[in-house]
Design a protein around this nucleic acid. Sequence first.
DNA 1: TTTATTTACGCAATCGTTCCCGGAAAAATC
DNA 2: GATTTTTCCGGGAACGATTGCGTAAATAAA
Lengths: 338, 338
Amino acid sequence: MKYKAATIKDIAQALGLSTSTVSRALRDSHEISAATKQLVLDHAAQLNYHPNPIALSLKEKKSRSIGVIVSEIANSFFSQTINGIESVANEKGYTVIISQSHESFEKEVRTLQYLASRSIDGLLISVSSATKDLLPLKALHQYGFPIVFFDRIVEEIATHQVRVDNFQGAYNATTHLLQQGYKRVGCITNSAHLSITRERVAGYVAALDKAGIRLPASLVKYCFHGGMLQEEVADAVQELLQEKKRPDAIFATSDKLTTGCMRALKKAKMAIPEDMGLTGFSNSDLIELLHAPITVVRQPAFEMGQVATELLLQLIESKRPVKDFETKVLQTSLITPS
Amino acid sequence: MKYKAATIKDIAQALGLSTSTVSRALRDSHEISAATKQLVLDHAAQLNYHPNPIALSLKEKKSRSIGVIVSEIANSFFSQTINGIESVANEKGYTVIISQSHESFEKEVRTLQYLASRSIDGLLISVSSATKDLLPLKALHQYGFPIVFFDRIVEEIATHQVRVDNFQGAYNATTHLLQQGYKRVGCITNSAHLSITRERVAGYVAALDKAGIRLPASLVKYCFHGGMLQEEVADAVQELLQEKKRPDAIFATSDKLTTGCMRALKKAKMAIPEDMGLTGFSNSDLIELLHAPITVVRQPAFEMGQVATELLLQLIESKRPVKDFETKVLQTSLITPS
DNA sequence: TTTATTTACGCAATCGTTCCCGGAAAAATC
DNA sequence: GATTTTTCCGGGAACGATTGCGTAAATAAA
């Protein structure tokens, strides 16, 4: 069953006016008399008239909707980011269409095409951990399609970017572990070609360097699926535990990896922080309730969503092609258990 | 900057055909010659032509998109449900537009109007804990707008509903606490007018009854904001602790309430399960990592999303008004720490 | 050869809205 | 009283696609 919404035509007919007059009256045009305007407005209210956004989209050639692609919404960081995105977008009258890549490149590409075909006006994306081929994104971008990267950046594509100071966050976390007295800090991280992976691992290495600690590269374990598969993390932890000189602490570079490590360590009956130190990136609000009181690097997720959306809308509403792109870098904070 | 997508007109012009011929060729109509079809198809591929969904929506009077309103996506239960919704909707070619009420009635109404004005074809909703006035929803429903309720049901509106066996889930959880030896089980629950609140409290009471335990109604504390405000939960816990005959265990009826209780008990330096037993509804995947190994009632969230979406699409695609409405009841499971 | 039937395509309306253009009536100016 | 200027409104095209109807040419039947 379909319910029929009132149209401008209905109002016109009922009042014996033309559609153009009604349209103008509703938009408060100066060339419509006050009396007619009132008449139209009253009748519109009575019919509960709302302009059909689809018809508008067709005419204006824009849908006033933006797409968001994240790996998973069931992830504190991303759901918080989305809240930030929504807050800005809705205020400006934009609809947000959220899609998940589930860390799969194929799903990401499909989603990309889908969103593009649904005529969204712009895209906010944090690429999947499996994304190595940038062609689909580049194609869209070269078409002049507005894109803003957040969190997981793609440097090869020239557009606005919003991220945190991943290097510093990782540096701080690693330094924190060292200050706790740990000597051999291993690292469990995401897919190697992600920007956040490179930056965070660099921060981790820099902190070790600064402390005069040199560790084998084998202490850095990459999880291609970014923790989506629990066993991938478990394997990585196991590998660390089986290193000839076993690490005494682990730095995990993402939400899923941090909790994944905890899970794996628990399974291996390794106590945190006694048997193994652990710290990592996480925006979960349950951290303080975990069985081991770990220190985490928290990202300003909500703010990141807001900033990214503002940049995107700016891009969308710009009259001429934007050539000057910004890279906003937000700061992380180290949260220690109270 | 705008990128211009190819239209049917572009193809027609380039090939010296009419738009109708091109349209029919693309839709593989029998009244177009094979030669012309091939010509059109080739050229369409070359121009990377994709039908404009907005133009189609305008003509077909449907947008092939559905709206979802939940209180919060940063909630394991809802994000899992959304995954289920997405899986079914996308497969059927529908876009999912997610909105959050943040447990605010005003936000819910605004969102409702917004979604309705964005011409979605149907709505999946789990009402906010603050929803007492059903007029906006009823208005939409009486208009013939397809709505399916999930999780938090509104019985007064006759349509499809999907929920879990809340009574049984609550009954099992409470019974579990009693079997552990707890005698005075308090309850921290959601806003009193929510369906899930009524059903879960009823299950809780029934379990006590069955065990021959009669407790004062003051042991049931209602949180109007459903745990959105941490202090609301903290206050409720405090009130329980200050009862003249203090309870020795708490049954919490939702995700946020369960973790909220844990947080409050931790603050009050009450050990779980020694000083106070705790169990509750939760779909968080971090439960097993919490400092206290609590038993939780888990809902089949993903499945719930799938079922609800199937019902909604069925409603949307039905030729005539549907009069027979289904109420699907799924089963919960009690997860005890290993 | 004439008529009937296909085949293969074009014309134009439609969806709801905006906006350019043109024009009648009223008001202002001379 | 005649002209110019406003004021106010309607006609119709446009956005991109679909579709009922009409029709020329090609083919088949008579």
